[in-house]
């Protein structure tokens, strides 16, 4: 499949909890990323799941060596 992009998957089990990172999917578009995430990361009874394209992340700290 062409034009693959990385999407990060976030979910939460309880509404009182914040969204947590649960994994990553690779898909050609957001709809497929969401559909794939829903079936791949289905181990819990999530109340919410969101996917976000990795390319849309805005670095607050650029990746650097650990401990520096």
């Amino acid at each position: 499949m062409k034009l693959q992009e990385t999407y990060e998957v976030f979910a939460r089990q309880w509404r009182k909890d914040p969204l947590q990172h649960v994994g990553t999917v690779v898909a050609p578009n957001g709809d497929l990323a969401a559909a794939f995430a829903r079936t791949i990361y289905n181990e819990e009874a999530w109340v919410e799941m969101q996917v976000a394209a990795r390319k849309n992340f805005i670095p607050a700290i650029e990746i650097r060596e650990e401990g520096k």
């Binding site: 050609p28 578009n29 497929l32 969401a34 559909a35 829903r38 079936t39």
Partner: peptide, 17 residues
């Protein structure tokens, strides 16, 4: 709703490729 999301993703891919 998730079924349609899957369909929509594939339709968009097929019509753009």
């Amino acid at each position: 709703v998730f079924h349609l999301q899957h369909a929509q993703g594939w339709m968009s891919l097929m019509t753009n490729t």
